[in-house]
């Protein structure tokens, strides 16, 4: 049933990348429990605007959980308390009247805060650019059905390929590691026959890029898996490690 609740927000406000930033308190009143978390922020921002204050900057776009643009840490958890949910798909029915909610940006060495809750995640693009692709040009492909892919392999590849690149895994990892993100892409492509020719090169290059871009290492905390809105499994990290070791020992990529 729809009802309305009142909340106290403690929101991270930071003018720009150079600013130190701090938590500020504001009230969210008459919030319908059918609203999404971002719609709640919209309402708060409309109020701030009319009161002559600057609204809270936050990233968002599709608002249906697929673009990966949104994401903040809510009460200490990336994308908030619900499992397998992006912030835009988190609804206010999961909060109670009178709650205080702390909202802060992703925090990681590789992600610079640009303003309030907006962060620069271009380092994730950097990891993909290092090798998260199959080197084919448009135009030369053979007929699609010439390359059968067993259904279970295709399913596993799809499980990994669902990653939306939001960065929640990095934000929730104590080491700010991007292993789940990189592992998902390496797995997606390594599981498919099309991806095998470059598997060793890809694993080697993407792991190197991860280090160079300032992401930490994996120490099996499993926070990433717990907070991933697409519930991507850490099995993908294990698969990445296998591909990486294989590349290091047998492929000559190391040189």
């Amino acid at each position: 049933m729809t009802k309305t609740i009142n909340l106290t927000l403690k929101v991270w406000r930071q003018k720009n990348a150079g600013d130190k930033g701090k938590f500020e308190t504001c009230q969210a009143r008459n919030i319908s429990t059918d609203m999404s978390f971002l719609e709640m922020l919209d309402v708060v921002n409309e109020g701030l605007t009319v009161d002559g204050k600057e609204p809270i900057a936050f990233d968002h776009d599709c608002r249906e959980g697929i673009c990966g643009m949104c994401g903040t840490v809510v009460n200490g958890r990336a994308h908030g308390p619900e499992k397998g949910t992006t912030l835009c798909q988190l609804h206010m029915r999961h909060f109670d009247d009178g709650d205080t909610i702390a909202i802060e940006p992703w925090r990681a060495r590789a992600f610079k805060v640009l303003k309030d809750l907006v962060v620069d995640r271009s380092a994730l693009d950097g990891i993909i650019q290092a090798g998260g692709y199959i080197s084919v040009n448009a135009g030369g492909a053979q007929d699609a059905n010439n390359l059968p892919v067993p259904q279970d392999k295709a399913d596993k590849a799809m499980d990994a390929a669902q990653c939306i690149g939001c960065g929640a895994c990095v934000a929730s990892c104590p080491n700010a590691s991007a292993m789940l993100f990189a592992g998902a892409k390496i797995s997606h492509l390594a599981l498919l026959p099309q991806g095998r020719p470059e598997a060793a090169k890809r694993a080697w290059a993407m792991v190197k890029a991860m280090d160079a871009l300032g992401f930490g290492n994996c120490t099996n905390e499993r926070e990433c898996e717990a907070e991933c809105p697409k519930e991507i499994s850490i099995v993908n990290i294990a698969r990445m490690n296998r591909e990486y070791y294989k590349a290091g020992f047998f492929s000559g990529e190391k040189n």
Binding site: I134, V136, G139, D143, A144, N145, P148, P150, A157
Partner: peptide, 21 residues
């Protein structure tokens, strides 16, 4: 040609048991 290109890129389309699209 689009389907051919996308499969070559590694797009994980749904498959039948026999491995075909």
């Amino acid at each position: 040609e689009i389907i051919d290109q996308c499969v070559a890129q590694g797009v994980p389309f749904a498959r039948e048991y026999g491995g075909l699209l």
